[in-house]
Design a protein around this nucleic acid. Sequence first.
RNA 1: GGCGACGUACCCAAGUGGUAAGGGAGGGGUCUGCAAAACCUCGAUUCAGCGGUUCGAAUCCGCUCGUCGCCUCCA
Length: 484
Amino acid sequence: MIKVFNTMSGKKENFVPLTPGKVNMYVCGITAYDVCHLGHARSAIVFDIIKRYLRYRGYKVTHVRNITDIDDKIIARAAQDGTSTDAVAKKYANEYYRDMDLLGVSSADLQPNATDHISEMIEAIEVLIEKGYAYPVDGDVYFEVSKFSGYGKLSKKNVDDLLSGARVDIDERKKSPLDFALWKSSKEGEPWWESPWGKGRPGWHIECTAMSSKYLGESFDIHGGGADLIFPHHENEIAQSEAYSDKPFVKYWMHNGFITVDKEKMSKSLGNFFTIKEILDKYEPEVVRYFLLSAHYRSPIEFSDVQLNEAELSIDRYYTTVLRIGDFLESAGAKEKLPQSEELVGLLSSFKDKFHHAMDDDFNTASALGFIFELIREVNRFLDSKPSGQKAKDLVARTKELLAEVGGILNIFNKTPVEWYRSLIAIKKIELSEDDLLQKIEERQEARKQKNWEAADAVRKELDEIGIILEDKSDGTAWKVRVG
RNA sequence: GGCGACGUACCCAAGUGGUAAGGGAGGGGUCUGCAAAACCUCGAUUCAGCGGUUCGAAUCCGCUCGUCGCCUCCA
């Protein structure tokens, strides 16, 4: 049984979708007004993995991820750049899709834009007005928070506290400072759409109500996003959606934690952010994914080079072992020899259960990675015991299969070792062609044959200086890239 | 001020009632021409502190200290 932490209840709950075998999932994407930073990547990667795991467990998942392509920030950006909001939104949405692609995040099944759903939003707003939950003022339309009795149930806030907090803007035209805009009249020079209340544009929250109900129905299973969306965005979505449909909006609310820098939330306004592009210039996408999966998705995770380097080391340990497995499968002798196989056999039979157990428990990727490295150690230990024969090969091949299977779900560990090293050469900007490298290794082999250790060591030192490490093995010399 | 989360070894991190996963760094060793990798081994009698519940708590409850987040746009 999969357990999911539901922000609404504050507890882990058994995951039982509304329709057996089917999961409808809506995840808030981005507002397209600037390039994305690592925080955006975390949300995308976390929910991508959740989707992959649910599919692996047999659910038919429909995943919707929206793009907000009209809002104040986009308007401001367009004015600043002397271009249209449309051009700004398109540009940064495309940047986002490119970043996600580089990071290995699969695209959602539906990636709707807010501006393609204006009529649905207007329709929803009309219903809210009819039902007495919203009121128009001078071309704006506001949602009347006091009319919705459940307001605050997600973010655990009560209306009185919010009112006394006094950090809400004072607008005389609103009945209450807590009321939020469903529709905003357009000012001179701003983009607009025709509506029953005049020319204007939608407020931020209503798009998610309109698009989620259109594509997933008025009630659906999972709604996700960063924890900073809990209030007010998701709280407001609930108010609008449930007022509109009189049905429970979402069964499981899931929110990922923040990325921090020096313990502080990475954010635009603090200026302490790193863009995805900056990071991918220094690190393999797989390293970034591993790093983000190495902590539970709800925990804060501290961004630093030390952390990324450790992730790189861990992945390298994985590929080093895969290389070793490959060598063994190619060259193992025929004579049946199985010293010390019990532990590996035992782990092979329990491994999937352990992995499932970790992932079933609110997608505990950090724990799952622990089990993967347990298996890595066990197979290394087995190989150290110098086994041979078909049975040994079967065990090792089985290990390789299992590792590939779970790696596929986490979307890491899916390269060949050589691809990993090649990729590292590129990312670390090592200026040496693979041909030249192999040439040098060849030269060194000659020297070694003649027991000319000085010459052999000189080659190794030369390569070491540019970040290439050589490993002498019984049947030749392998190369790898220094990591960490 | 209100609400919420977190505090596990040198660093990162899992563990939510049954006696501390995993990765990195470090000491010692096996292997090796030397290395590297791999493996073995050492390393928290202890989970911020203090009380309480329990046969038993890192895990539940209370208080204290510390850190962070939300309450305004924010993944």
